[in-house]
Simulated scan of single mutants.
Amino acid sequence: MSAPRPEPARIVVLVSGSGTNLQALIDAAGDPAYGARIVAVGADRPDIEGLRRAERHGIETFVERVADHPDRAAWDAALAAAVAAHEPDLVVLAGFMKLTGPAFLARYGGRTVNTHPALSPSFPGMRGPQDALEYGVKVTGATLFVVDAGVDTGPIVAQVAVPVEDDDDVETLHERIKTSERAMLVEWVGRLAREPFTIDGRRIRFQPKELS
Rank of each mutant, 00 (worst) to 15 (best):
M1N: 14
M1S: 15
S2A: 14
A3K: 15
A3F: 15
P6K: 10
E7A: 15
A9M: 00
I11F: 06
V12R: 02
V13G: 12
L14I: 00
L22I: 07
Q23K: 11
L25Q: 03
L25W: 03
D31V: 07
P32V: 01
Y34R: 09
G35L: 01
R37L: 08
V39S: 10
V39T: 12
V41S: 01
A43G: 10
G50D: 02
R53M: 08
R53D: 05
A54K: 00
I59S: 00
E60N: 12
E60D: 14
T61N: 02
T61R: 07
V63K: 03
E64P: 00
E64A: 06
R65N: 14
A67F: 07
D68A: 13
R72L: 12
W75D: 02
A78I: 04
L79S: 13
L79F: 11
A82N: 09
H86Q: 05
D89T: 00
L90A: 05
L90Y: 03
V91A: 06
V92R: 00
V92G: 03
V92K: 01
G95Y: 09
G95I: 07
K98S: 08
P102Q: 10
P102G: 11
A103F: 09
L105P: 00
R107G: 05
Y108Q: 07
Y108I: 10
Y108E: 04
G109Q: 02
R111S: 04
V113S: 02
S120Y: 15
S122W: 07
S122K: 13
P124N: 12
M126I: 13
G128P: 03
D131K: 08
A132N: 02
A132P: 07
A132Y: 03
L133I: 12
V139E: 13
T140A: 03
T140Y: 05
F145G: 02
D148K: 08
D148E: 02
G150T: 00
V151R: 07
V151P: 04
D152I: 13
T153D: 08
P155D: 00
A161F: 11
E165M: 15
D166W: 15
D166C: 07
D167N: 12
D168G: 11
D169A: 08
V170R: 15
V170A: 15
L173T: 05
H174D: 15
H174V: 00
R176L: 04
K178L: 13
E181R: 04
R182P: 06
R182A: 08
V186H: 06
R194P: 11
E195I: 12
E195G: 08
P196T: 01
G201S: 10
R203A: 13
R205C: 14
R205K: 06
F206Y: 14
F206Q: 06
E210A: 12
S212M: 15
